[in-house]
Design a protein around this nucleic acid. Sequence first.
DNA 1: AAAAAAT
Length: 502
Amino acid sequence: MSFAELGLSPEILRAVDELGYSEATPIQAKAIPLVLSGRDLLAAAQTGTGKTAAFLLPILERLKKFANPSVSPAMHPVRALILSPTRELADQIGVNAKAYTKYLPLRSTTVYGGMNMDPQTAELRRGVEIVIATPGRLLDHIQQKTIQLNKVDVLVLDEADRMLDMGFIQDIRKIMSLLPKQRQTLLFSATFAPEIKRLAADFMHDPQTVEVARQNSTNAQVEQLVYAVDSGRKRALLSHLIREREMSQVIVFCKTKISADQLSRDLKRDGHAAEAIHGDKAQSARLETLNSFKSGEVKVLVATDVAARGLDISELPFVVNYEMPNSPEDYVHRIGRTGRAGASGVAISLMSPDEVKQHEAIEKLTRQTLPPQTVNGFERRESSAADSGFGSRNAGRERSDARPAREPRAERAERSERPERSERPERSERPERSERPERSERAPRAPRDLRDAATRSREQRDPQEGLKVARVGAIGGRVLPQRQREVPALLLPPRYKVNQER
DNA sequence: AAAAAAT
């Protein structure tokens, strides 16, 4: 299906065309008409499916009627709000938005932490129709009264499951409760944990569901390999693989910031152009590293899960799990960095004896067997850990230089009737976090005073004036916090790791 | 048990 057939305007089609896109991806073909119709959308879309354009393009089409460069900034209220879990993803969406609005007088800006607030505030004051934000900084702007959200028509929650995992759910709920009720909500998520469904039930109106790939599935284009190796030999094996497989570009995932730093140092010593990216790096360094990786200057990007989701590095051929991820969902996201947009990719996981549990969880979630193999010269020798680790289950399954040996499709399909997660007992709610009890007290706060000094002085002369503007001050013209008080469940802390086994 | 995100 071509973009032209999807009912997009010439200005948008021209920008899309210049970026080299002609055919819409499946998610785009399904989502664009739906978003154009104004309905709420619940989309199960993996990364690399063209998700960003699937929501940006129809949003631009819907906002086109507001595109008028000649009116004053006050006439450019925020019409579309896009929330992203990480700063890098927000940045990418921002870059896309700028590209797609090339021929439309619609303005967009990106708002996230780690950067000075002032330039963001200045941008917002100039008037923008589209804001892409991370939750924390957005709430900061709301609190500082440097952003008004009372004219938001469309809200997008990108990577909603990620936001959940990161404990943003309260922030998201809070932001959503501050938006006009009359709006369109688009929710994108790779997996649908119960908490996501609840969020949808609470804040969306009769959403249409669009699913592109099976939930929790991995991309068939990605060849997945698991190498059993002693933990002490991982670095040597990685160096070997980078050379032997002639990896021109690879993201290597670590579990911690410290091990990411350590590994990038070691790899540099081994002569690889490596650089680490994680949340303890300054935002500027993160962007810089990402850019030099995209440009090819850095060949090995050693990353924590900050880079696991959403990063769009075109034609990335290799992903290595240097350490198995803590949650199997992260595995899906990590290897989703390769094999994007139809290209093929290879995902290699290095599994030490103490990581067998993670490996099992991955096989279970993705409903496939990933038999551990060994690489010549890197066979494991650790005995004690191996007995408790690699032991019985994988005995006889290891092979040298064997093919990945994926299970035949039919067999995999058969097993898909396995018991669902709902069988597990419900977790009890966590107690309110003691360090921030002010959250629930703060929530039902008074409407914000958005008035300028001139208005305030007018109010002093005419008390009626104050009543008029006070209504405008309440976001969306409504005093929503009252409602929250009646629904205390909304303020409960998130239940962490809904998907995690055990 | 860790990472991310507001400072």
